[in-house]
């Protein structure tokens, strides 16, 4: 019997790998209050366990995965959403307290509250009326 050679499989064809890497940019609203900044991001399909929110070197990273995607048996007819990943990053200024960031996600909308440091909050200056 002839000797059979195992042909090493290519890890992944480039277009396939690219499609997987390419992430969508979620639409965001950023709103400033006296206490801090509120960020809202549309990430439909992302739940609390498929969301990855982190801070590294003053950059806030938003990452999320669409949890439920159709299986192999579903043949696409019409596609507007082509990726299953979201990614966006924001640089934070020094006026924010990175230790006290709060985040929650509901119905595919992420809400992040980034508080300002106590010393950075606006102070009310009272104006006395001279009588």
């Amino acid at each position: 019997m002839a000797e059979r050679k195992e042909i090493a499989r290519r890890e992944e064809s480039p277009p396939e790998a690219r499609r997987r890497r390419r992430a969508m940019v979620p639409a965001v609203d950023v709103y400033e209050t006296e206490e801090g900044v509120i960020l809202a991001a549309d990430m439909p399909g992302v739940g609390p366990d498929s969301l990855d929110l982190r801070i590294e070197d003053n950059v806030l990273y938003l990452r999320g995965q669409i949890k439920e995607v159709p299986g192999e048996e579903v043949r696409p007819d019409y596609v507007e959403v082509r990726s299953r990943e979201y990614f966006r990053a924001f640089t934070l200024g020094p006026e924010f307290d990175q230790e006290k960031i709060e985040a929650s996600i509901k119905h595919g909308v992420l809400r992040v509250f980034i508080p300002k440091l106590e010393t950075e909050k606006p102070k009310k200056i009272e104006i006395k009326v001279a009588s």
């Binding site: 399909g45 159709p70 048996e73 579903v74 696409p76 509901k106 909308v109």
Partner: peptide, 26 residues
């Protein structure tokens, strides 16, 4: 710069048609 809302994907299997409507925050 606004996105179309909601985005829609359609697919089908042998017995069903599946429609995914991406409508966050509703």
């Amino acid at each position: 710069g606004e996105e179309v809302y909601p985005k829609i994907n359609v697919g089908e299997t042998e017995n069903e048609v599946l429609v995914y409507i991406f409508a966050p925050g509703m």
